[in-house]
Design a protein around this nucleic acid. Structure first.
Lengths: 210, 210, 210, 210
DNA sequence: AATGAATGAGATTTCATTCAT
DNA sequence: CATGAATGAAATCTCATTCAT
């Protein structure tokens, strides 16, 4: 019974709702990224999502909840940056993680752009995201560096500071794309970019004989 | 006679106006930095500057003009980052410029915080500031690196990319202070911080025997 | 079936919007006529139209747009003054046009009152209305007089000046009603009024033997 | 004693104050005429009168008092329209009064323009001026016409209506100048204009044989 | 669920008036 | 008397949110 398809109908309904939510978040992220959260009206989001204004409120309780939805989505994605690279030789592991970071960043530009601009002034977002997600990446990197120093592979630098500087280097790569003034290189170029970053990081800028 | 105390009265009036403008900008920068431009009301700025709302409009034509006033002020200050360091040995020059950058950044935290949060979504600010001031710093650094490579002091890296990565490293140092989650080290610590950055930059993270 | 009651729903919506717009314009014209445009607040118009302030902005983009809406409406009505009277004997034609002018003016008193008071200082209104609508009436009258002179029915007067003076005479009739200090005579009296105006116009005030 | 010039010093002071008041009224009338009362700022009036804003308040207690000052001044002038013409032959008397009306109107255009635009919506002005000054002119004209009818010089028309229509004719002559879309003819042309008005008024527009 | 008209609190901005200098 | 900076009430307009259909 229950006509075609069956399955728990509840689940189908849930899936439809989730899909609709994602569509709304994607539309909202696009507009937020372009105009900023405060300058964006619900009407504009509704228009971009091809829905009536009131309909949005069936999926999100407020404009702010849409923003937090974006933050969460981005959160989830950041997780994946850290996956992979395990068991590889150091240099290659580094390069792959950087490259993957570039890939993900590009896909998520509107989300990241929204995220960063609002994180400056919104304490809840700042804590939910920056002080949880970035902190995790930062800690993981610190631990890794500490290990490598102990293994004698890295020089005896301050691991926390080194982690911070490395994240800064990575940030400088995606910043222009985030700001919308330049786009990231094509996938092939990204590999080269990652290699150059890692090269500089490992060997420094000074000529060896110095 | 006619020592200080006389002078053209026009000039005294002008000075009073300029002083009042600076007071307003300082108050506004504080509030913008905390709450963001869009969330800040004229009423709040006026309250912080200890003036009536209408009085602000005797000095700035609109809320936005106040924001642009902050951008301009910051502009002027950024100039000074690049001064000094000429003629010093490379390592020391680098260290001093980084240190000075930290000093100036600290003084200007509310202004910088305002600036960066709004530059994301405000094209005029983005172009007036980021694409003029930062670009200058970036170009100067690129030129410097190119020289050093030609002189055989630096390895043969991509100078533009290296400059970008270095700016990213510097950015990572002031970011926590800008975000308000940590403050910069005391002046003595800043010297050490600058040295560590320069050390990592010059020699890399890899152990020498590698 | 599908008699009245169906129709494209778009069209029904459009009609509802148009009706609402007219309601707002009527309320606004009443208030403008009493207090003048500048002295009238949006709040007052909204109150008179029995709507919230914000609702007005769903129909008109600004207070000024409401004013222009009134001007346009009046424009459209003025057209009809000139209709009719064709083919009648001169005296009767004149009388009928004057009478119709009185009728229309009475219906439109709040609109006309608004219009005239603002036309003094608002160039756009002055040109959109006075210099297009009144000009048309004026030209038509001039042409008519010229014809009549050539036909030997009217004396050899300056047709343009005569037209101007006639419009002034008509204006003096509706002015008291427009100012709100007196109302126009009842319809029957209007015919008599029109006849007296035309009589004076045709034969002058001087006794014949003079 | 009392130094040079003597005279009651009070009186000299009074004269200076009166002169200053007139200067302010003239400046205000110019600006009001151009932009309307509500759109004009005290700052603009002060600028045109070459005074500081606060200084105006030494002469007039409020912006509105300046407006009423203009109304009064105009009032005083209107008086003079009616002077003269006594004892002249009818036609010439009419012509001279009309001509003088044109002369005075031209001199006073900014004042009249201000007056008429505000009289629409300001009951105090409407009553103080229109319903006192115009009423006087209107009554005088009515009386005159009644006399003339009794003397058999004028036809048996409704004197009140005739007076109204005549004022309307005169109004139509100065209206374009008042509106700022045309200027009055040069003095010589004014005589001709007045003669044409009077001619039409006395003999009508119809050809005699009709 | 979907719609979009209605709502009204709240923001920016203007400007007549005051008052210390 | 003259000045013009300071004041703050009041006006216009925006827009997140609600709710009847």
């Amino acid at each position: 019974m229950n006509g075609e398809g069956a399955g728990r109908p509840e689940s189908r309904r849930q899936r439809r709702i989730q899909r609709r939510k994602r569509e709304i978040l994607a539309a909202a992220a696009r507009v937020f990224a372009e105009q900023g959260y405060a300058n964006t009206t619900i009407r504009e989001i509704a228009y971009q999502a091809d829905l009536a204004e009131g309909t949005l409120y069936n999926y999100f309780g407020s404009k702010r909840e849409i923003l937090l939805g974006i933050v969460n989505d981005t959160d989830a994605l950041m997780e994946t940056v850290l996956l992979g690279g395990e068991g590889l030789e150091d240099r290659e592991a580094f390069v792959q993680v950087v490259e993957r970071g570039l890939d993900i960043s590009e896909e998520q530009i509107p989300f990241l752009r929204t995220l960063f601009s609002e994180a400056w002034v919104d304490d809840e977002i700042l804590q939910d995201f920056v002080d949880s997600q970035l902190e995790r990446i930062y800690r993981r990197l610190t631990t890794y560096i500490t290990d490598r120093i102990e293994a004698g592979v890295f020089r005896d630098v301050d691991p926390a500071l080194a982690a911070q500087l490395i994240l800064g280097m990575f940030g400088s790569l995606i910043l222009p794309a985030l700001r919308g003034v330049a786009s990231l290189p094509a996938p092939r170029g990204r590999r080269a970019l990652a290699e150059q970053l890692v090269d500089l990081l490992l060997k420094g800028i000074q000529a060896p004989e110095n």
